[in-house]
Design a protein around this nucleic acid. Structure first.
Lengths: 144, 144
DNA sequence: TTCCATGCAAAGGGTTTGCACTCTC
DNA sequence: GAGAGTGCAAACCCTTTGCATGGAA
């Protein structure tokens, strides 16, 4: 993590009213620099290269904090473990059912028609689209 | 479970090359009679009303067997436990993020445009759309 | 000094597995 | 009898929690 990245990340945490501790900066540098899809365990492994003392419980706590602060999204891809996505733009996902690899589909590439906006006192929160494929090769997440 | 249902269910299992044991018939009668969304635990509870000796491990085994045989689908709704859907028609889902209630959206009600059919050796398996809402009241699943 | 953040270990929920018993073909 | 299906309990994985320590405002 270079100085430019560090200050940029620090600013993003500041904007989200998050105290930039060492642990949070380590997690942020793994996830928030570019759009990635990672499980908690992958985040832990990557962040420990930078901060070996980092504990699993702290990573889970930081991930939840980042989700609450809308720096990350949890992906509704079924499977053993939660996948965190640092792409905060509206978008959808390609999911390789064999390898667990995940790739983004922009909201302009793929559109959903007929979403019930607010029927009968019901409030729309969000729409997730998962396109399940075999043979996807990019951006591997290796979940299984 | 009346006799008509029983023979109908038995036929569905037969068509799927599944031996119609007592346990499998109990699970089938809970799930396969009409479109429902249920967790493994809910299936166990319901099936035990019919066959009290039914074990949890067997229910999980039968659910997996039914999914492999395409009698059921696992819903990609994130959350603690897997939800099984006995509606085998192409359709999508409304999901209440507060109550866990699930409702179907027919494929004609909601359409997805721009799905990449088969790019670069990649094979399309399926498309899941989850519309997350608050305040949905029908067809409660009470997951949380 | 008062919170908030962290780390460890243990607990928790959901699911799977090992193994012996039972049933079907 | 051979193979498949079942039940129990233990194991397993992912995640959360309790509690004591450490650091920031």
């Amino acid at each position: 993590m270079n100085v430019l990245n560090a200050s940029h990340l620090q600013q993003r945490l500041h904007e989200a009213s998050i105290l930039p501790t060492l642990q949070r900066m380590a997690v942020a540098s793994v996830l928030l620099g570019r759009p990635v899809h990672m499980t908690a365990e992958q985040v832990l492994d990557a962040a420990r290269r930078q901060l070996p003392s980092l504990s699993r419980a702290t990573v889970y706590a930081v991930l939840q904090l980042f989700v609450r602060s809308r720096l990350l999204k949890e992906l509704p891809i079924d499977g053993a473990s939660t996948v965190y996505d640092s792409n905060t733009e509206p978008h959808h996902h390609l999911y390789d059912i064999d390898t667990g690899a995940v790739a983004d589909l922009s909201a302009t590439q793929l559109q959903v028609l007929g979403v019930p906006e607010a029927v009968g006192g019901m409030q729309l929160v969000g729409v997730d689209v998962i396109v399940r494929v075999r043979g996807l090769v990019q951006d591997s997440v290796s979940m299984r």
